[in-house]
């Protein structure tokens, strides 16, 4: 990254400030440079001063795992805190490790300190409910069921599912995408995107080597399917007598209008998911380094509560131009990726 990047030309001051304060070192350098060039930003001295002071974060990685003991009271019995040894409880140790991997991706790649960027405690509850075939974010913590064992294994088995749940927290504190219709599907897609990136970073995989599956390992061997969703080929993850067929579309022309699933949030997320997959593979290399950064900056600076797929396309295109230059290979890849799912950036 060099000073040739015309950051100040496109992004408004409040976004530059945000990037300068909360981005990675690379993003901070770019944002600071842009701020120093921008006479429009009234508070630049203060902003730069605060950065130079290197104000410490209120909290770091603080994980706690609880056991609901197959009940539904949260958070449940405390099993393991930050830095404590393994418990021998498989689900608890998986939840602990994966929360750490997710924290690390956000911290090391995007310079983010936990879900709220203020070091929020990462609380997880395992063994929730009886044969509960779900994992969710309840607004404050992650919750994992054991699965029924017939169709679904334990929900801590997939690193990307854990990254998915934590990302719901990030989205809640940032764009705040409402959980319905297109903003909801975008919310879901962000969780799949960053969940996938947690796994790829952990495995050290480049975009062309990754499987781009969500929930690989979660379906039992009795189910005809490889995962819950496929970002590379939405609609192909499973086709089973009990589960039915993966309902995800890959393009806008196949968008599913429905009132179920909060307006198809887990269905139409296939469209922005596929756009990210195409952008990341076209750009090449490690997906978190460029495509991931573009999506992260869009999520934390430009997207809003009611943003649509079109807004996301425009935002990621704008951010790609800011980070990598107008007309750059990265920006063109983003544009082509959205066009491939029937959305033309404006």
């Amino acid at each position: 990254m060099t000073s040739r990047v015309p950051l100040h030309c496109i992004l408004p001051p409040h976004i530059l400030e945000h990037m300068a304060q909360r981005g990675t070192d690379e993003l901070k350098r770019m944002a600071l440079h842009a701020l120093s060039l921008s006479g429009r930003f009234r508070g630049q001295r203060e902003a730069i001063g605060a950065l130079a002071a290197g104000a410490p974060s209120p909290g770091g990685k603080r994980r706690t795992v609880y056991d609901a003991k197959n009940g539904e009271d949260l958070p449940g019995l405390r099993l393991r805190g930050e830095g404590e040894p393994k418990t021998g409880n498989l689900a608890a140790d998986e939840a602990y490790d994966a929360a750490g991997d997710t924290y690390d991706l956000y911290h090391d790649v995007f310079g983010r300190n936990s879900v709220d960027d203020l070091g929020l405690r990462l609380d997880s509850t395992v063994h929730y409910g009886q044969q509960y075939d779900n994992a969710f974010w309840n607004g404050r913590q992650m919750v994992y069921g054991d699965g029924d064992g017939q169709l679904f294994n334990r929900f801590t088995i997939s690193l990307d599912v854990i990254g998915h749940e934590l990302t719901h927290g990030v989205t809640q504190y940032e764009a705040g995408l409402v959980y319905s219709g297109q903003p909801g599907a975008l919310n879901e897609s962000m969780s799949d995107v960053f969940g996938c990136l947690v796994k790829q970073k952990k495995l050290g995989q480049t975009a062309d080597k990754a499987d781009w599956l969500i929930g690989q390992g979660l379906l039992t061997t009795k189910v005809k399917g490889q995962a819950l969703r496929s970002m590379a080929a939405p609609g192909t993850a499973y086709d089973d007598p009990v589960l039915g067929k993966d309902p995800q579309p890959a393009r806008m022309r196949d968008y599913v209008n429905t009132t179920s699933d909060s307006g198809g949030v887990h269905i139409n997320s296939g469209i922005p998911n596929h756009a990210f997959y195409i952008a990341a593979t076209e750009i090449g290399g490690y997906a978190w380094e460029k495509a991931g950064k573009i999506w992260y900056v869009a999520l934390t600076t430009l997207l809003k509560r009611r943003s649509t797929f079109q807004n996301a396309a425009n935002a990621t295109f704008q951010v790609a131009g800011t980070l990598f230059g107008a007309g750059s290979h990265e920006q063109q890849s983003v544009s082509r990726a959205w066009a491939a799912v029937d959305i033309n950036v404006k």
Partner: peptide, 11 residues
């Protein structure tokens, strides 16, 4: 009865 949603998205 229909159940949708959940992280699996399976109906």
């Amino acid at each position: 009865m229909e159940r949708t949603g959940g992280v699996t998205g399976v109906r």
